[in-house]
């Protein structure tokens, strides 16, 4: 692939050698009390697959929209390759929005041709890129069918490859694999790995922990407009060693239990699903007796108790302190 050249990685305001930087970024939307982004500082190195995790409303889409210049920060700075977002920078970025952003009454080929032309491609080069993208998405058989006749998986694959039509150096994916069949998801994962191997920097937001675990080199977990943790997946999981406490109860606990558990000093997060409790604390041994007492007061008993390294999902739950999705 011929990528438009960005300059060599530079030192970001966040203090690291970074390609994309968010430095103290604050954003509020009119009519809302809570800040969508509340002092986000992030540094994303060049050439990685970076995952943004967080429940709905955490601020992931706002953050990604800033990278493509559609949303401007109230305070703080956003830069790509050390520069503010300009038209020239945008030409090097490909974005695949959350919902398939395509024209349903045009065919897949016509969609690719149109967006290709909008990226400045013409002639044989455009024709070649359209075919490459159709092949990448494995939708060549349906290239001349109207997109409105496509399955969800086909639409999302097309949605992804439209973002690749101009061979961007930075690819931004906003929950691109939501509601998609396993084959399409696997294909998209494969393509993203190939792109990474070719040197493309990929920033993706996702709800799927296993996706992040499998694909991403680095992640940031966001909650309520803040980055609650960030780093490489391995480091983050290792830092969770022995921080997770898992309990199985003899019955479903009352709803009030979560608040009681969260009020225990030293408790970082609590998630309750049915009769299973997962809590995180930097020093589990300091909170175990308080947990047991809270269970007794709630009229439930523990059938099993364990400590251990969590999965990314457990890390996510402990960091966000909630069930996976807000309503």
């Amino acid at each position: 692939m011929n990528h438009l050249p960005f300059s060599a990685p530079n030192k970001s305001a966040a203090g690291e050698s970074a390609f994309l930087t968010f430095n103290g970024v604050v954003k509020s939307y009119p009519g809302t009390r809570r800040r969508a982004l509340d002092g986000v500082t992030l540094a994303i190195p060049k050439g990685v697959i970076f995952g943004l995790l967080g429940p709905n409303g955490a601020g992931k889409t706002t953050l990604l929209s800033m990278l493509v210049g559609r949303i401007t920060p109230d305070a703080g700075t956003v830069s790509v390759d050390g520069a503010a977002i300009t038209r020239e920078i945008l030409a090097k970025i490909g974005m695949s929005p959350q919902e398939p952003a395509v024209y349903p009454t045009l065919t897949a080929r016509e969609n690719l041709e149109y967006f290709g032309r909008m990226q400045g491609l013409t002639g044989a080069h455009l024709k070649n890129r359209v075919q490459v993208c159709l092949d990448l998405a494995e939708i060549s058989d349906a290239a001349d069918r109207r997109v409105e006749q496509f399955s969800g998986g086909y639409k999302r694959r097309l949605n992804l490859v439209i973002a690749l039509i101009h061979e961007p150096e930075l690819l931004i994916l906003d929950e691109t694999t939501v509601a998609i069949d396993p084959h399409s998801r696997s294909l998209i994962h494969q393509r993203l790995r190939e792109l990474h191997a070719e040197g493309v920097t990929i920033v993706l937001s996702t709800h799927y922990m296993e996706e992040a675990e499998q694909l991403c080199h680095q992640i940031a977990i966001m909650n309520h407009g803040r980055v609650v943790t960030q780093g490489s997946v391995e480091t983050l999981l290792a830092s969770q060693h022995n921080n997770i406490i898992k309990l199985t109860l003899d019955q479903d606990p009352p709803d009030s239990l979560r608040a009681v558990l969260l009020s225990i000093p030293g408790m970082r997060g609590v998630a309750i699903a049915g009769c299973c409790i997962q809590a995180s604390a930097p020093h589990p041994e300091h909170v175990v007796s308080s947990i047991m007492e809270a269970l007794r007061e709630a009229g439930v008993a523990a059938q099993s108790l364990s400590f251990g390294t969590g999965s990314l999902e457990q890390l996510f739950l402990s960091m966000t302190g909630e069930e996976r999705e807000e309503p």
């Binding site: 038209r87 030409a91 929005p97 024209y103 909008m118």
Partner: peptide, 20 residues
């Protein structure tokens, strides 16, 4: 409809002048 379908957003994320 183009806005709702997201294609307008996609165009806005590209370096496409508004008049186009």
């Amino acid at each position: 409809r183009e806005r709702e379908q997201g294609s307008l957003f996609r165009l806005q994320t590209m370096a496409v002048p508004g008049w186009v």
